[in-house]
Design a protein around this nucleic acid. Structure first.
Lengths: 150, 150
DNA sequence: CCAATCAGGACCGCTTAGGTCCACTATCGG
DNA sequence: CCGATAGTGGACCTAAGCGGTCCTGATTGG
């Protein structure tokens, strides 16, 4: 249904939480704070750390802290850290895996769609999500090149 | 991974195909043309017909034809017809289903993200996808409000 | 009346995400 | 120097959703 994984949602919550308490916090601590099972949170934080979105400190008194301010973290980055690359169809990543390549008249044509989504997502930061007031400035100009639906 | 279903891909292919031969075509015919098993194509076409993207004629000599020209069909419409509403998180549709509602600092904050995606997708028509030449005009201005990644 | 064709279900197997657990390593504090 | 604490990396299992198939109507043209 074109929906992203729940893990990504957790990631956003964790990051926002980490921003609120701007100091080192342990994964059990974060888990308790956001009401998500600890092992799951740990997995999410690992992924985020791997992409530099959070900085990890090992050993006793270790934990995680934010890699950079919320307003410098794009939603797209979080999604890619957790869910992997943003590509709507398997045609894109798998490339020549599509057996009906010859018949398929739109082979590779999803690219513009992917780009549009990537672009849209990279223009929204976690700070925007935190601040309920929607970045109306970010809402696309709405040129409506066709009879808008949605 | 933020990817849409293969069925949606089939739908696009079928619609483009249906546009090429602009006359009534049967589902077995389309299936053969695009190299996809017939029952699956039938299912897709049913969904499309339900949303008015294709017009169906029953009985002998019946079949499907395009509901309106390709350039008036937004990708978002096809996705919604096949995959259901575009909502990134279950928080959005399920609404109050989120148990950690009180703890969740970003409850409902995915809305702007959803809107951005919906908007981006509704601005790309099937005609755009057909015409390989990407509607660069549609590519968002790329203002890069933050350190772009993606 | 018969054949062709869509409509709308029920059904099923497979993939994969979500979640859990374990052994390992690194660091701090005493 | 030793042990407690915390992240790292991996294997693993379960359950839900998707992709795919099939069957029984309803409808229309010849």
């Amino acid at each position: 249904m074109l929906k992203l994984s729940r893990l990504t949602d957790y990631a956003v919550v964790a990051l926002v939480r980490l921003s609120a308490a701007d100091c080192v916090e342990t994964s059990p601590g974060i888990a308790a704070a956001i009401g998500v099972p600890e092992p799951t949170v740990a997995k999410v934080l690992k992924a985020l750390a791997g992409h530099g979105l959070v900085i990890s400190s090992r050993g006793a008194r270790g934990g995680y802290r934010l890699g950079r301010p919320l307003n410098e973290i794009a939603v797209s980055e979080v999604i890619m850290a957790i869910d992997g690359p943003i590509a709507l169809t398997s045609c894109v990543d798998g490339a020549s895996g599509c057996e009906s390549q010859s018949l398929c008249p739109v082979a590779g044509r999803w690219d513009p769609v992917n780009d549009a989504i990537r672009s849209a997502l990279s223009r929204i930061s976690l700070a925007d999500m935190e601040a309920a007031s929607i970045p109306t400035a970010f809402r696309l100009p709405v040129v409506a090149p066709m009879n808008e639906v949605v």
